[in-house]
Amino acid sequence: MVPPGLRGVLPVVLACLALAAGQRLFGGQEFFVYVASLVGVNVVLAVSLNVVNGMTGQFSIGHAGFMAVGAYAAGRLSLPLGDVAVSGLPVAASDQLLFAVSLLAGGVAAAACGFVVGLPSLRLKGDYLAIVTLGFGEIVRVIIQNTPALGGALGLSGIPQRGSLFAVWLCAFLAVLVARRIAESSHGRSLTAIREDEVAAEAMGVNTTAYKVRAFVVSAFFAGVAGGLFAHFVPIINPGSFTFVKSMEVVVMVVAGGLGSTTGSILAAVVLTLLPEALRSGFNRFAGEGAGAVVDQVRMPVYGLLLVVLMLARPQGLFGTRELWDRRKGQGARP
């Protein structure tokens, strides 16, 4: 048996070993690494947005804004650190340490934005939050576009490419772990209560505003980390990567997977990231080189259609609010 003190650490250690093995096996295949990293980033985004939109029932549609804050904060910090090494450490280890610091900075910057945006708007109910988050996402994008220090519309290039399969998927794993811990804690139960009926939750003694803000901050933190990861494996980041379309992409993942289900968010993020790539290579092969470019143009209409079909056929999403690791549901009545 595992000693209780290690029980929380063990999954992380196992994940690290598995990911290190994966890194050794596939780390050389450039395209595979790129797509797998993209999938991992989207998993982090979807899982974190699910904490707010799914578990808490608040509708945020500005996740790309938090991702942008994280990407630019981490990227901007890494830029001058490209040739810096922490003394006394091998170069690779020092690179990874600086990378981790950048990621953390990205996450914290996004979380701070989440707090600033969330505190006033989460006192309001329903649609207001959607509008505020939408506005936030656009404001972030426009500010970046007009800030020369961040590269403006051209974007930021030359960020050291420190991202790896290992780093991306370790973050994805941690995001899932945190989401699951939240869901199973008394914190998670209060979020469920808020989702179900805010007035009643308040009447149960739940400080609804505080819990909503906390969920929002955690969600923004992971969106920021996702942005930081993204900035370290794409050659250039520009405001065009963080538009409203990106936010909607994540919302579609969460809704398709089932609002409130982390499992659903993961699955939907994987499928919806791979689908355009698969279509692209399919088009290229069968309809001639260059036909794949069509995929990017038809992607959003296809997403829209997918949502309509899903809402008609299975309004609760693929998983509803259930999880792969659920043992509770489906059991018969207890006493």
């Binding site: 469920t192 209560a193 179900e196 009926d197 009643a200 009447a203 149960m204 003694g205 400080n207």
Partner: peptide, 26 residues
């Protein structure tokens, strides 16, 4: 605010019952 009053020994069963419809009785 009501969430602080609960800790002070007041419980409110609101009009229209305000139960959590998708959660079980338990």
């Amino acid at each position: 605010p009501s969430h602080l009053l609960v800790a002070r020994g007041m419980a409110h069963a609101p009009e229209g019952r305000g139960i959590f419809p998708n959660l079980t009785v338990e």
